[in-house]
Design a protein around this nucleic acid. Sequence first.
DNA 1: ATGAAATAGTGGTCAGACCACAATTTTTCT
DNA 2: AGAAAAATTGTGGTCTGACCACTATTTCAT
Lengths: 203, 203
Amino acid sequence: MSTSKIYLEIVKHLRVMISNNGLKPGDKIPSERDLSERLDVGRSSVREALRALELLGLIETKKGEGTFLRDFRGNQLVQILSTFILQDEKAKRDVFETKYIIEIDCLRLALKRIDRKNIVKLRNWITKIESFEDDEFFYQIILLADNHLFLRIWLILKDYYYSLVQTPPKYKREDYLFLLEALEEKNEELTVAAYWKLRNLSV
Amino acid sequence: MSTSKIYLEIVKHLRVMISNNGLKPGDKIPSERDLSERLDVGRSSVREALRALELLGLIETKKGEGTFLRDFRGNQLVQILSTFILQDEKAKRDVFETKYIIEIDCLRLALKRIDRKNIVKLRNWITKIESFEDDEFFYQIILLADNHLFLRIWLILKDYYYSLVQTPPKYKREDYLFLLEALEEKNEELTVAAYWKLRNLSV
DNA sequence: ATGAAATAGTGGTCAGACCACAATTTTTCT
DNA sequence: AGAAAAATTGTGGTCTGACCACTATTTCAT
C-alpha cells in the first residue's frame, strides 16, 4: 500500500509525531538512528526526509547534538527557489504586485482588529528607534491582522522580494506615521492611500 | 571552505549545471551514479540533495527512467508549508478569510485588465451552461487577473476550502451576473459589493 | 571539589549491495 | 523478414555497515 517514496512516509510520520507530542520550535526530535529503528526503515531514508525538511527550513541539525524543530522563516530556501523560479520578468512583477496587495489586505484586516494601545506602541517604536526596517513594521501589522496564512505567505513573498531587489528602498518615516493615523481613525480609504504614498505607487 | 553540508553544495552544482546547459522543464538530468562520480561524492549525498529538490517540486523522479526537471512555475512551496501549518482549528477561519480576500483582490486586478470580449464570453458561459461551479468561475477571474502567484495560492486555498466544507454552498446565478455587470462598468466598489452579496457576507 | 580524560551519542559521509522498474538490445520462433 | 519473447542495461529506491567529527556526559586521577 505505502507504495513508493519511503521518505515521504517518514515526513508524514514526523508531522504526526510533532503534532501528537506537541513539539514546539526548539524542541529536539528523535535521532536518525532512533527513527530508523522505530519506523523500521533504513537510516538513509530517514536522512532523505530530514534533509528535505531542512532545506525547507522546518528543522535544524547540529552535528554532535541532534535535530531540532525550527521556527521556520525563509532561509536559503528562497535563494534556491528564486533562482529556479524567478527567471522571467513577468514572475518578478507578480512578486511585487502580490506583496503589495497582501500588505494592503493585512492593513485592512488590522484596521478592524487594532486598538489604541497597539497604535501607541507602534508609534513609539517608529519614532524612537533609530533605524527601523520596513519589513519589521509590516510584520507587526500582519501580526495584528491575525491571519496565519497571510503571515506565512507574506514571509515567503518578503524573501522573494529581497532576493530580487539589490538595495531595498528607504521609505519616509513620516509616511509610516500617516499610515498609523489613518489606521487609528479606522479610515480604510485613507489607509490605502497612505500605503500608496509610502510606496510611491501611482493609483 | 566547503564547510559542512555536502548536499547543499550539490544543490548549488545542480543549479549551475541547469543554468549553464540551459536545461528546461522536462529535460533529464544526469543519473545519481553519474553525479556521484562527477562531483566525487557519495551517492547518498546526491540523493539527499535530490530528495530535497523533489519535495520542493523542482524535479521529478521516475523509477527505471531517471530524474527530470519539472515545470517549477507551479512550485508546491506554499502547499508544503501549509500542510505543516494547517493543523489547528484557528487555521480554519484563516482559510476562509484568506480565500475570500484573495478572490476580491483578483476581482480588482481583473477589473483593470478585463475587456468586453471577456465579459461577453463569461456571461454566455454562465447563462448557457446548465450547472457551472463556483470555482470554475473564479478560476476564470483569476486567469484574467493575470498573476501567477495569486493563481497558485488560490488553487491551494480552494483545495483546503473544499476539504473543510462538507457541502459547498450553492450560489445564485443572478449574483454572478451582477458581478459581471459591475466588472463591465469597471466599478470597483460595486464589484466588491456584488462579491459580498454573492457570498452572503455581511459588511 | 576540580579539571582532565575516556566514553557514549549524534549528525555527516561513503561504499557496496540488493530490489523493482523501464527501455533497449538480442535472441528465438513463426 | 517480421514479430514476439528473453536477456541485458541503466535507473531510482532502499538497506546495511562502516568511518569521521563533533558534543555532551561520565569517569577518574589529582
